[in-house]
Structures are given as C-alpha cells and as structure tokens.
Design a protein around this nucleic acid. Structure first.
Length: 603
RNA sequence: GGAGCCGUAGUUCAGCCUGGUCAGAACGCCGGCCUGUCAAGCCGGAGGUCGCGGGUUCAAAUCCCGUCGGCUCCGCCA
C-alpha cells in the first residue's frame, strides 16, 4: 500500500507552482490537504511548507493514478508527477497563490498513510490549547503556526545580519552555570561528579557577557535561551529567548542607538513599517504618574490626572484619609464614555479584584453630574476638579485615593481595561518609547532591604555615585532610604505598545563601586565573594566601561505578529504549569539516574 | 500561594440555573452515489466512563465537596 520514495525527487514546492510552469511536467511532494471526489475526477489539494497546489486526477486518462487518488485521505504523504496546466476558464481560485494552475496527475505515489488527524489542518477550526500542544506537529502544519515560525526565522536572520554588519561577535555562553541569589528562582541541575552540588541554568548571560567585555571582545551578541523558574503567563515561559548584546567604551546613547536601529530595521524589513527615530523617552517617574505603570501604552488617552491638591482640605473622608496618610487622589476621564450603571459596576468589580476598596466615579449626563460622591464635595472642589479633568457631556470620571503605588496600579490597570473593553486602541499604531531615569534601587518591605530595580550590576548615574557612599555612612534607615531613592540608574527599558520588549544598562566596571552597591543591597562580603567573586575579580583586571541590552525575542516577535501569547511563536512551548504536552516533561527518572546524581526524593 | 473561566463523540460545542425522553448538533470518520470542485454535493451508518473520586437523592452530565488538567489574571518574574 505504501510505496518507496525511490528517487522521486521533487522539482519545486507545491506552493511555488506558477503559470511559468504551464506545459512542463513536474514532480511535487507533500501532504494531502483535502480531497474532492466527484466520481471520475478527483481533486487533491496537495500541501507543503510553501503552500497548496491543486492536483487533478481523471479516471478516463490515468486509471492507475485515479485508483490511488481514490484511496488517499487527509494528511497522507504522496508524490505527484504530472503536467502543469492553466486551469479551465471560470475554475480559477484566486484565494490560492497557485490558483490559476493545476497539476494533471500522471503518476501518484503514496509514501505514507496517516491516521485521521485529531483536528483538521485548517484555519477555520478552533482547537483547545491542550490538544494543539499535545499534537504540536499537526498544529505546526497549520498556516497560522507555520507563518509564525517562518516569521520568527526571518526575524533571526535580520538580527544576525544587523549585528554582523555592526561588527558584533557572536559568542555562546554556558547553560550549565552557577546559581545567583538575586532575581528569579533558578532551574538547577544536579552534578554527578560532585555530590550535593548543582549547576543552575542561566536567567540570562549577564555575567558572562560582562566578562567577555573584560576579555576585550568589545562587541558581543547572542540569540540565547534563558531560564527562570517562576509562574507562567501568556507572555512568560520558563525557557525563553533573548537577543543579548554588550558593548565596550560606550555610553547609554550608543547602546540605545544600536537598539533603535535594529528595531527600525526589523519593522521595516519584516512589516514594511517605518518607525520614526529617535524614539521618545519618558522618565520612569513620569510614566508612573501619567500612566500608572513603567511600561506605558500611549496609543490612547485616559491619562492619570493628579487631584491631590484639589482635595487637600476636603470633607470627603475617603479622599481626606488617603491624603492625610501621605497618599494621593487621582482620576482618569473616560471621554464620552457614556457608561451605564451596569458597566460601571462591572468596572468596580474589576478594580476590587486588584485590591481597590471601591471605585468612585462621576458621570456627566444631560448637563448634570451623576455620582455617589459629588454630594460630599464643596462647590469649589467640584468646580476645580471638573476643570482639571476637562469634563464634558458624556464623560465618565473614575477616582482612586490611596497610597501612590496603589493608585497607580489601580488606575493603570483600569486604563488598560477600558481601552480593551471599548476598543480605544488604534491597531495600526506602533507606540515605541524608552523609559529612562529608573531609580537604582527601591526599598523592599518584605525583605526589609534595598533591591535592585534592574540588576545589581547596573551603574548609577555618575553624578549620583557619591550619594551611594553617603548612604552607607548613615545608620538612620529613613535617611538612608531618602538618599538611596534619589540615586538614578543608567538603565533604559524599551516599551512597545505597553509591553516591555527589552532593557539594558551601563554596567559597573569598577570593583570598588560594585562592592559599594553590594553593601547597600546587604549582600554580605562572603556572599558576594561566593556568588559573584569571579566578576569582582574580573573587574580588577582591566574591565573597560561597558553596557548592553537584552530583547525578549518571543515577546517582540509575538507583538510584531499581533499576538497576545508567546506560545504562538514558540515551536514547542510549555503549558501554564510548565508541562510539555508533547513529551510529558517534567517526568520521573529511574532510581539509577537519581543515585548517579546523589539525589533522594522525599515524598 | 490566591481568584476567575473551562473540561460532554476524534474535534468544536449545546444540554447544567430549574435533577427524571438529556446522550444531542455540526464538522470529521466509515459505506454508497456523483466528471470541474476548491470548507464540493447528495444518501446511509458507526461513534460517548459527560475529566477523575466521593457525597446528597428513589433518581446526577445536571446539586455539593475534593482532586486532576487547560486558559486568563493577582502574587511572583532584578
């Protein structure tokens, strides 16, 4: 039933058969996409990577081929030899790239049969994520996934060409490396040769790329897998890919320039979109105060408006309490929102899930104010607030009053929710923005110490360096917090359409400064030596000034394709619980394997 | 660690609120017919541990509890 492939070498891809081939006899190979059997004449849509071509088999002229065509089913693998001809007038299919031609089969060879696929290889049928991942090889045959992966391939090539032209050197860094205390949880790998010791998979090649700078490679890049053992999201996988690069003898301007030119190139070559350079820059503090987040999406309005001063003497308790406790009152004005009470209630539930106590609101309706709270405001307060938010007929104004970070979180999320619910985003627009002037560290209440916002190797602004030493001198924690919070980092994040697609910084290249930072982070000398000793040591052997950047490749590719989930641009992604549906990893290993690596599992 | 949605033929779903003609549809599959279709068409047929376990009840896909899995989100992810 199944025939040998022999030397049935194809002449071209199915999807590439064109009018130029008319009159030629050629061989094509592929998967049976669909069969239309009319009795006497059978149409087979034959599919490969490049597309679909129609094969016609007639009983009258080619009885042997017809007999085989009569047996084939979807997803069987066949070869076809036949003459390419123009389709009869009126039977062309403009939906197909090859729709003006067809192959009149003389010979059909069945290379393999197929069980009926668990779901059809078409674009019409929605299939659950679970089934798609379990039969990923079927899913990858579908146009959608195929195009995503081919796009990703073209993306890699643009990146490599760019860095090659720019004089960067591609160097691989190890996957079996050392666990680091800061940051995400590590995936760890037991060592057979060293009982009780473990490698860790890298969260990023950060330290290695810095050491490559010390080694003098000057410009390094790599497209590299990174690993973080944290809970997953639509845009987070336990293993993901970064475009990582690092440069010596540069300032942030040089690094950002490289990033901008690469991003412009990617958008131009892959999407035909011209992005304007230089990209806008927005300071971290401004991003927070205007958009409630450090990854602003500026494609729509709904900016946060500060009303703290308006209500500083208000009688309305909710606002006054918040202000008295050092908090703020902010609002967003949903211009011409015209929301119903029911819609407002739904939004209230939404913010409550985020930890808001409630959602205060005002509707401007038929020239009047509808609101549960306006009655508590003085005339002056109402007037000022309406003026400040530029209230007009149809507007709905939402308020949040609490600690600043909570207000930002609530209104920042509400802003995105409104944009999503009421389709306020122009899908044609690309909003590309740098977020700059990050604080170097912030106080972590839970841990009771400072933590790096970026990572511990990020350099402070030169003019702020002295403050770090000053902060170490004082024992007064509040004083220290005040000083440290004023220290800004030489870091920069790239945000596109409200998604963080990458970040980088100028690094610390002096061991004394690096030690000062470790001290402030309360990483003890022993720990610093134990975990980062090799870096500190390297910094003493002629480390050049350097800095770099890393893109989240999966996110950027998904974003450019207009996709919400990075699973759709990864060939073999994991589920939300980190399981590979195809292979059933992670899985048990044999007792012998465990013994080899000196591991005992406690049930 | 927490919240929400989902789980019923191979697939996508309806049925669940209000327990009892509730085992249903479409596509797919199998058989037959059909010479210009392209999500071909027409006729016929097979196919289900209603995720799993327990409970309530005369009776559970349906109500309750637990559990497993998928998705989305919060925490977390420098």
């Amino acid at each position: 039933m199944v025939e040998s492939f022999g030397n049935f070498k194809r002449d071209k891809y199915c999807g590439e058969v064109s009018l130029e081939d008319v009159g030629r006899e050629l061989k094509v190979c592929g998967w049976v996409h669909r069969v239309r059997n009319h009795g006497g004449v059978i149409f087979i849509d034959l599919r490969d990577r490049e597309g679909i071509v129609q094969v016609v088999v007639e009983e009258k002229t080619d009885p042997e081929a017809y007999e085989k065509a009569d047996r084939v089913k979807p997803e069987w693998v066949i070869g076809v030899r036949g003459e390419v001809r123009r389709r009869p007038e009126g039977t062309e299919n403009p939906k197909l790239k090859t729709g003006y031609v067809e192959i009149k089969a003389r010979e059909i060879r069945i290379f393999n049969t197929s069980d009926p696929p668990p779901f059809p290889v078409d674009e019409e049928t929605h299939v659950s994520e679970e089934i798609k991942l379990r039969y990923r090889y079927i899913d990858l045959r579908r146009e959608f996934m195929k195009e995503n992966l081919l796009f990703r391939h073209r993306f890699y090539q643009v990146v490599r060409r760019f860095f090659e032209e720019e004089g960067f050197v591609e160097i691989e860094t190890p996957f079996l490396t050392k666990s680091t205390p800061e940051g995400a949880r590590d995936f760890i790998v037991p060592s057979r040769l060293h009982p009780g010791k473990f490698y860790a998979l890298p969260q990023s090649p950060q330290l290695f790329k810095q050491i490559l700078m010390v080694a003098g490679f000057d410009r390094y890049f790599q497209i590299v897998k990174c690993f973080r053992d944290e809970d997953l999201r639509a845009d987070r996988q336990p293993e993901f890919t970064q475009i990582d690069f690092e440069m010596s003898f540069v300032s942030e301007e040089d690094v950002m320039d490289v990033v901008e030119r690469l991003v412009v190139r990617l958008f131009k070559e892959l999407l035909g979109v011209e992005l304007r350079r230089p990209f806008d820059r927005i300071p971290y503090e401004e991003a927070l105060s205007r958009f409630g987040t450090d990854k602003p999406d500026r494609r729509f309005g709904l900016e946060l408006i500060d009303l703290t001063d308006v209500f500083k003497n208000t009688k309305f308790k909710v606002f006054r309490n918040a202000i008295e406790q050092g908090g703020v009152v902010k609002a967003i004005n949903f211009k011409n929102g015209n929301l119903s009470r029911k819609e407002i209630d739904e939004l209230t539930v939404f913010v409550q899930k985020l930890g808001a106590k409630g959602l205060a609101w005002i509707k401007v309706e038929k020239g009047k104010l509808t609101s549960p709270i306006v009655k508590f405001f003085s005339e002056e307060e109402t007037e000022k607030l309406l003026e400040r938010v530029k209230a007009e007929e149809g507007d709905v104004i939402f308020f949040s009053a609490d600690r600043e970070e909570i207000v930002h979180r609530i209104l920042g999320s509400l802003r995105l929710e409104l944009a999503g619910r009421y389709s306020l985003v122009d899908g044609q627009k690309w909003d590309v923005v740098w977020v700059v002037d990050f604080p170097l560290m912030e106080w972590d209440e839970e841990e009771g110490r400072f933590v790096s916002l970026h990572h511990p190797f990020t350099a402070p602004k030169e003019e702020d360096e002295e403050k770090l030493r000053e902060a170490l001198k004082t024992e007064d924690l509040e004083e220290r917090k005040r000083i440290v919070h004023a220290v800004r980092a030489r870091a920069y994040d790239l945000v596109i359409n409200g998604e963080e697609v990458g970040g980088g910084s100028i690094r610390i290249h002096r061991s004394d400064l690096q030690e000062t930072v470790f001290k402030l982070l309360e990483i003890s000398e022993e720990e610093a030596k134990d975990k980062f000793g090799f870096l500190l040591e390297a910094l003493r052997f002629g480390a050049p000034p350097h800095g770099g950047f890393a893109f989240g490749l999966d996110r950027l590719v998904a974003l450019m394709r207009g996709l919400d989930s990075i699973r759709d641009v990864i060939a073999f992604p994991k589920t939300q619980k980190g399981i590979c549906m195809l292979t059933s990893a992670p899985d048990r290993v044999t007792p012998g394997q465990l013994k080899d690596v000196h591991i005992k599992v406690v049930e």
